[in-house]
Amino acid sequence: MTQDSPCYRVAFHRRLLAPQYWPAWLAVGFLSLLAWLPPRGRQGLAAGLLMLCRPLCRKPMRIARANLAACYPQLSREEREAMLNRLLHCFLSTALGMGELAVRSREYLSERIQIQGLGHLQRAQDSGKPIIFLVPHMFALEHAGVGLTMMGLPMVGFVKHHRNPVFNWFACRQRIRFGGELFHRDMGIATVIRALKQGNSLFYLPDQDHGPRQSEFAPFFGAQKATLPVISRIARCSGAVILPLSSGYVGDRVQIRIDPALSVESLDRYDEARALNQQMERLISRHPDQYMWFLKLLKTRPEGEARLY
């Protein structure tokens, strides 16, 4: 980010080659090599690493286990543990495959990423309005952003600064390799609205827990979740169209599915929160074991309910 532009840019610099960053470069090189391994090969490697990584992932596994118990009370403990195993396998496969977004060709990625529902996207574009894609935290989310950018859609993304500058450079490079701009996620709603008014499109992820201050509790699967109902204000101020979008791995492909436009502008705060959670449930249910259940989604609890984490 510079004084002249609010965009978040990370340029390569020679200081990134200092010895303290060599382990990070080894990791980047390893991911770049794995990018040339077929997806099923990475899935097999992830399966082999599963038992080794479980002891290293105790905290995220504990969080995911609590989330699954709260959201899927109808499932048995054995069913939830099986889902947790699939979740960890998908997480590892995704991590091993992140290099492909940074080094593989446009032709390869266009073949790997398949987008359905382009008619809904075309209608939104024909209206001349910017687009807010309503999306949950799925493991294939980065592929969705790259896929839309490769189509020529002007996209902006919001990032969190990584403490390791090599990983920070690598992550930002892969996200804007085919176009688009990045902003730091602390830039605020005004920056989001300004970017949309300039004709950009963006992903809006309403499923994180932002605390009780301005949130509304609404049903989310089998639990009550604190949800921030602000997308209606963003859409109203920017004139944007809201398109729900899901992303998931299906065999050797990444399947992106765009749904018809959603209207929440006329809803009150609770009904908007409920509508957002209903959309999240629907989109997550297409690939339930590819959702980031490791997040503290239910950190804020209704009065009188015990903490989950």
Rank of each mutant, 00 (worst) to 15 (best):
M1L: 13
D4P: 15
D4A: 14
R9V: 15
L17P: 07
L26G: 04
A27D: 05
L31P: 03
S32R: 01
S32I: 11
S32P: 06
L33N: 00
P38D: 09
G48H: 07
L52M: 10
L75Y: 14
L87I: 00
L96R: 09
G97S: 15
G99D: 13
V103D: 02
R104K: 10
Q116A: 12
G119V: 12
Q122M: 07
P130Y: 02
I132R: 04
F139M: 07
E142F: 07
T149H: 09
T149P: 06
M151Y: 01
L153I: 05
R163Q: 11
P165Q: 00
V166N: 07
F170R: 09
R173S: 11
E181F: 14
L182R: 08
F183C: 00
L196D: 06
G199L: 01
G199W: 15
F203L: 05
L205R: 00
D209P: 03
P212L: 00
Q214P: 11
L228M: 10
I234W: 10
A235G: 00
C237P: 03
I242A: 03
S246R: 08
I258D: 05
P260D: 08
L262D: 13
S263N: 12
V264K: 10
S266W: 04
S266N: 13
D268Q: 09
R269E: 10
Y270T: 12
A273M: 02
N277M: 05
K296A: 12
T300N: 01
G304S: 02
R307T: 07
